[in-house]
């Protein structure tokens, strides 16, 4: 009895995970949330509100790079609407430009992968976060 319940619960969990994974809108929103959370940490360090920590700093750029790699595939044609998406139609009208924007983000993120000083971090962080607004301007609607 207990075993059945456990198996069922396990199945339920697995199913939820699969569903979350198979929903590209949820997945890309989570990827962006991770980028946002990393940026919060980065901004605190850049502004001097938090102490500079090179491991933390490098982790921020790793989050960026991971998101930049993962994101372009999370916009299949089936995900143009729904789930409170704020993706602009331009994502699908201009796939080449959209992918190029993430390629640039990935390059800028890579520049910070081995950052070891606060000054270096500020420069790389500034360059990487310029991508946020630049890409959102074109590929995201207001919300």
């Amino acid at each position: 009895m207990i075993r059945t319940a456990l198996v069922l619960a396990g199945l339920g969990l697995g199913l939820t995970a699969v569903m979350a994974q198979s929903n590209p809108i949820t997945e890309r929103q989570q990827a962006m949330k991770a980028v946002g959370a990393a940026t919060r940490e980065g901004a605190a360090m850049a502004k001097g509100e938090a102490a500079f920590d090179s491991a933390k700093a490098q982790a921020i750029f790793k989050t960026y790079a991971d998101a930049a790699k993962k994101m372009p595939a999370l916009f299949p044609d089936s995900s143009k609407t729904g789930g409170e998406t704020t993706a602009a139609p331009k994502v699908w009208d201009d796939q080449a430009g959209f992918k190029a924007a993430f390629a640039k983000f990935e390059t800028d993120a890579a520049a910070g992968a081995t950052v070891a000083s606060l000054d270096g971090f500020r420069t790389a962080f500034g360059a990487a976060t310029k991508n946020c607004g630049a890409c959102h301007e074109v590929y995201r609607v207001k919300k």
């Binding site: 962006m32 959370a37 602009a88 607004g133 207001k142």
Partner: peptide, 20 residues
């Protein structure tokens, strides 16, 4: 100044130009 909201979302669409 930077386009970042308090939860570190970054505004899009024409607001990005406004921020610039």
């Amino acid at each position: 100044k930077t386009g970042f909201t308090p939860d570190f979302d970054n505004v899009g669409g024409t607001m990005a130009a406004v921020v610039r």
